[in-house]
């Protein structure tokens, strides 16, 4: 797998994603500066990492969404290329309108860092192809703006299109208010575009890809991408 991780001013999970991808699935990963206009040739996966691009000033992800590299990423996504946005990367993808919705301040107005459980709602995406439907993954969240919001009509639409890939849940997979850490609409933790090749999620798979870190469940997402690419899957 040839992956690149985009570095914006203020990104702070870029090195973590690079470490995780290169150790877990032996990916050939490079860092890509936000001012670039092109992606490296034969890129299999683009990751927008977590962090505080532009200090989260104005709105999280808003300024990063105007960076030159986003044009290249839009073109790449239109061609079916795989794009994954984690945390701040998810916020950037919604601001760039590559994904529906917006991420607002957590319901309790505080930053929340803790281990969370999310349920895989789809297994027919490149990012979840190795999972079982309903499988519960444990991954940490760490954000201040993670409340996923969509106007009611738009919500109906993404539900109809089955664009919800992950929902916050209890350890046994049930979904209720108690398991919703930030007040997200419908417990949504991750959504995919209609084409099924651009995924955004708030939990951090790269922080849950090694046993020593308390969970390896995030690694299943890297494994899914790797085996999907190996099979020559196309979106």
């Amino acid at each position: 797998m040839k992956a690149c991780v985009v570095v914006f001013p203020g990104s702070n999970c870029d090195r973590d994603v690079i470490h995780s991808l290169s150790t877990r699935v032996k990916a050939n990963v490079s860092a890509l500066w936000y001012e670039e206009h092109k992606l490296p040739q034969d890129t299999d996966l683009v990751v927008l990492p977590g962090g505080f691009s532009y200090g989260d000033y104005l709105r999280c992800g808003a300024m990063a969404a105007t960076a030159p590299i986003l044009n290249a990423i839009k073109g790449y996504a239109e061609g079916g290329g795989l794009v994954l946005g984690i945390c701040n990367g998810f916020q950037i993808l919604t601001e760039a309108r590559l994904l529906p919705g917006a991420l607002l301040a957590n319901k309790n107005l505080k930053f929340i860092c803790r281990q969370c459980a999310v349920r895989a709602e789809r297994t027919d995406t490149p990012f979840t192809s190795n999972l079982q439907t309903g499988q519960v993954l444990k991954m940490p969240i760490a954000h201040h703006e993670g409340l996923y919001f969509l106007p009611p009509n738009d919500l109906k639409q993404i539900l109809a299109n089955k664009q919800v890939v992950f929902r916050y849940c209890n350890n046994d997979g049930t979904i209720d208010d108690k398991s919703n850490p930030n007040g997200s609409v419908d417990n949504i933790a991750g959504v995919i575009n209609k084409g099924g090749n651009v995924l955004g999620l708030m939990p951090h798979p790269e922080r849950a890809s090694e046993k020593i870190l308390g969970s390896e469940d995030g690694g299943l997402i890297w494994d899914s991408i790797a085996s999907w690419l190996k099979k020559g899957g196309r979106c």
């Binding site: 470490h19 505080k110 929340i112 860092c113 790269e206 922080r207 870190l213 308390g214």
Partner: peptide
């Protein structure tokens, strides 16, 4: 004290064992 430390990112840099 989780009301304190859950407001701190304690997992970034993926070294926290």
């Amino acid at each position: 004290k989780s009301w304190i430390y859950e407001q701190y990112d304690h997992t970034v840099q993926i070294n926290t064992v």
